[in-house]
């Protein structure tokens, strides 16, 4: 089976060329997070299948963003474009539900996706995930390192999944052993 073509946020050809050149030369430090991509979301959907109670069917993906934060808002828009009215991956269909960070808890969701670059504000998402026993996934490694989110998914240079085990436990989420053996645990 051929996976669907991945959509990515457009980057100019010149920009990609320069970045590629710098990366090959080892001059470009890896960013803490890159713009969210369709590939990220494919992987996010797969991650949901490795929880102790795998999510299936229609799953509301709570996209947590801050309209006042340009990066976060851009991620939210990119996600809405990727997901459309619903994106089916394997046994589940992700339904986007935008949630502004100041209205956390007001909208039900199957899990939370934390947009990047919220800094200290991300801690609110961690608290909400703990309170509502929801899995939080992000593409912002710093948020997972800080314990604000349980899982980071990054696909820019191969698939990298990072799990903050303590954050996952606090939100009542556990993963299969086979999954934990293949990811980076912090």
């Amino acid at each position: 089976m051929t996976p669907p073509k991945n959509k990515t946020v457009p980057v100019s050809r010149t920009g990609r060329f320069i970045a590629m050149g710098m990366a090959v030369a080892g001059l470009l430090p890896l960013p803490a997070h890159a713009a969210v991509s369709a590939k990220d979301i494919q992987v996010v959907a797969r991650v949901l299948g490795f929880t102790t109670t795998p999510l299936t069917g229609n799953v509301k993906m709570g996209i947590v963003y801050d309209a006042a934060n340009a990066g976060s808002a851009a991620d939210e828009q990119a996600l809405l474009g990727i997901l459309g009215s619903g994106l089916t991956v394997g046994a589940l269909t992700l339904i986007p539900v935008p949630i502004t960070i100041d209205k956390l808890g007001s909208t039900p969701a199957g899990f939370l996706f934390l947009t990047a670059g919220l800094g200290a504000e991300a801690a609110k998402v961690g608290s909400q995930a703990n309170a509502a026993k929801l899995l939080c996934i992000t593409n912002d490694l710093a948020a997972t390192q800080a314990g604000s989110c349980a899982v980071t998914v990054q696909t820019a240079n191969g698939v990298q999944i990072t799990v903050n085990k303590a954050a996952a436990q606090s939100s009542g989420v556990a993963f299969a052993s086979a999954f934990m053996l293949m990811i980076t645990e912090i």
Binding site: K39, V43, T52, A174, A178
Partner: peptide
């Protein structure tokens, strides 16, 4: 409390490349 064995198909789909246990006995 936990679940799940080694599901080659799901793990391969997630990582975008084949997954194997033939090197160490652990999925990689």
């Amino acid at each position: 409390a936990r679940a799940q064995e080694i599901n080659y198909g799901a793990l391969s789909a997630m990582f975008g490349e084949p997954v194997t246990t033939s090197a160490t006995g652990s999925p990689q």
